[in-house]
Write a protein that binds this DNA or RNA. Structure first.
Lengths: 217, 217
DNA sequence: GCCTCTAATGGACGATCGTCCATTTAATGT
DNA sequence: ACATTAAATGGACGATCGTCCATTAGAGGC
């Protein structure tokens, strides 16, 4: 068990066989996230992280200078990975309708790849300690500027034809994100009952009410 | 600072002056919640709770049998207080329209009394550790049966006149709760930007889309 | 081969954790 | 006033925390 996660070196690499600082850095980050998902932030200690990564206890101080920095790096890594996967799942052809682009974001956010026991536990764990960890707070926001802009532009296209309340686009954007946030909480609370399809349809229904004639089944 | 929170005995009580076990129990719970809101769950230790309450270190073991039980009791107390205050703020006359009853729930949930820095931090702190603390998980759900039923019945009345999709009522209910959940996260993320009024109006707008002709300004 | 430099180790360290209990203090019954 | 009972104290305890560093191990240069 102890060295199962060890890095297997792609043979043609610059580094010949052992000694790969960067790989160990990443290994520590992964071990941190796994530990948090497994036993919770409260019990995630330096010793526990090290024994899971198979590395020695000194490594954390060596690579990150301390536990807090490792936690922050892990939060950043987690956030980056989330948005990278989100991008990957939502780059439809540029001729996709704005409705399809919005629904792509929703379905991506509710997909198994992004919403699963591991990510939910980690996400809420980080958010729970964000108030007292300024470094982590910066990576626990759902308001990623790029994602917000994606939604905003899609809703703007939809609402453009008929001039309406100028707040409509903003409301649709932050309402959609709020609904997704709520779905994550529902998932964490009871994974058995939760249904990805029903959750997506619920949000579609709300958007359909906001933009009459749009977001129909 | 140390004994500011000490209990002042109502003079005519059964207990003459000192020695009030139940009051100390409550005092420990309050101190626990205050500590969590102040420095985060991670740093909330037995010593810190005791020094805030002004009581001795042995009290926690005496009254709760251990730190975990105290945390669970604090979560329960917090949840109970939330729903009690919610009840207090939403008992309109029984002749109130269903729309008003729904909006009362929304406005209560977004009111200063229920949504403030202290409650948000505590709430998310508990949710963050709920996965690894089964005892706490039971009190970190937004799906309080009574509140759900209140919303369900109001939406049922609204939708009743014209038969629609049978899922409409359920969707409106859990959608409203999800939106509120998202608003709490927005508040936690950036309390400066957050606007209670705008948040309430956003949810009203979503509901207005769901029930045409209803929830107008 | 040897030298140099850095990655990596693992134990030492003091501080703090949560638990437990012998003792003291206050209220009650007689 | 004294005995009894429960509440409350605060220090002892071993375990574990996070940090730090003297030491070892491995890779590249000469």
């Amino acid at each position: 068990m102890e060295s199962l996660n060890r890095v297997k070196e792609p043979k043609g690499r610059k580094r010949s066989s052992k000694r790969d600082p960067e790989a160990n850095r990443q290994l520590l980050i992964k071990a941190t996230l796994d530990t948090i998902a497994d036993i919770g932030v409260t019990d995630t200690s330096v010793s526990r992280i090290c024994e899971r990564s198979g590395l020695s206890r000194g490594m954390i101080h060596l690579h990150f200078g301390g536990k807090d920095n490792l936690l922050t790096a892990a939060a950043q890594h987690f956030s980056t990975e989330y948005y990278a996967e989100m991008d990957r799942m939502t780059d439809l052809g540029s001729d996709a309708s704005p409705e399809d682009r919005v629904m792509a974001v929703i379905e991506a956010d509710l997909s198994e790849a992004l919403l699963n026991p591991r990510t939910t536990k980690i996400w809420h764990a980080f958010r729970g300690i964000a108030s007292s960890h300024p470094g982590i707070a910066r990576y626990s926001s759902t308001q990623d500027p790029k994602l917000v802009e994606t939604l905003r532009r899609a809703f703007l296209e939809i609402a453009h034809q008929n001039e309406q309340d100028p707040n409509l686009v903003d409301d649709a954007t932050s309402g959609t994100l709020a609904l997704l946030e709520g779905m994550w909480v529902n998932y964490l609370t009871d994974m058995q009952i939760f249904s990805r399809r029903r959750s997506a349809e619920l949000i579609r229904r709300f958007l359909g009410g906001l933009f009459p004639g749009k977001f129909m089944l």
